[in-house]
């Protein structure tokens, strides 16, 4: 293929965009290792901020809470979402199209609206604010992602395999357990990773639903930033972004290449 001037310009454009996307994150990471608390240059290496972060009970408590909420969300959303995906894939029924459309509001409506609506309703029915409310909200936001991911994996599933198993005498429970589930398991893993990421990175809904002083990591960071931020926040932010990018890297690998391995 001959490379024209235009193709070269295109590559430069792409490189500039990657720079735009990653430079601020790298600057933040670098500043978490810089001695000056006011982000002054020249750069002087220190791990002081990470040590301070590790000693900050508030940050550690919020981090543990965030991870726990994300784990519970992942388990519930993956279980419920996989069941719904299997049903949507296997059966034809009236209103199926509507059920698929209903998955979009949690994704498409701004979280500000969903979050405030949840806050009002949860107070109305007595759940109020707090960790249970946050989990209820996170599962709802994660469910559509799980269902879409697992359904995408199912669409490459050959229904003839189920029929073959059934004609060999397997009942439908055995078919599900021994034929269908093993095939879609990469989709389930990817869906679970998406669910974890949706919960772990969620700020808006957690912000409205969590109890003050008992919040998740992103909510704590938001409060800290508005009070005037410190390099400790840099340190924990750097850890968060590394973790969430790592999880998403795994999820996209699983979703795409899971079947071939």
């Amino acid at each position: 293929m001959k490379t024209s001037l235009l193709a070269h310009a295109g590559r430069v454009w792409l490189a500039l965009i990657l720079f735009f996307l990653y430079a601020p994150i790298l600057v933040m990471a670098a500043m978490s290792l810089n001695a000056s608390p006011f982000y002054q240059l020249p750069f002087k290496f220190t791990t002081e901020w990470y040590e301070e972060m590790a000693g900050n009970e508030q940050i550690i408590a919020a981090a543990i809470r965030s991870v726990l909420i994300a784990c519970v969300t992942t388990v519930i959303a993956t279980a419920l979402g996989t069941c719904a995906s299997v049903a949507l894939f296997r059966y034809d029924f009236k209103g199926k199209r509507l059920l698929q459309v209903l998955l979009f509001p949690p994704i498409a409506i701004p979280w500000l609206i969903t979050g405030t609506a949840m806050l009002i309703f949860f107070f109305f029915i007595g759940i109020g604010r707090g960790t249970p409310a946050v989990i209820v909200g996170h599962v709802a936001l994660a469910l559509p992602y799980v269902i879409v991911t697992v359904t995408a994996r199912l669409s490459s599933f050959d229904i003839a395999l189920e029929e073959a198993a059934r004609s060999l005498g397997a009942d439908s429970w055995t078919v599900l357990r021994r034929v269908t589930l093993p095939w879609i398991s990469p989709g389930i893993v990817a869906g679970g990773l998406f669910a974890f990421a949706v919960s772990f990175d969620q700020f808006v809904v957690s912000y409205f639903l969590s109890e003050p002083g008992d919040s998740t990591l992103p909510v704590m960071i938001y409060t800290a930033i508005r009070k005037g931020f410190t390099p400790e926040i840099n340190a924990i932010s750097t850890i968060i972004i590394t973790l969430s990018m790592g999880i998403m890297f795994l999820a996209t690998r699983k979703a795409k290449f899971g079947g071939e391995h």
């Binding site: 601020p24 600057v27 933040m28 990175d201 992103p218 930033i225 972004i241 969430s244």
Partner: peptide, 13 residues
């Protein structure tokens, strides 16, 4: 797919 709040914070820096 990474944390949007943290990315906004990185621009603040």
């Amino acid at each position: 797919w990474s944390n949007s709040l943290v990315r906004i914070f990185s621009w603040a820096i």
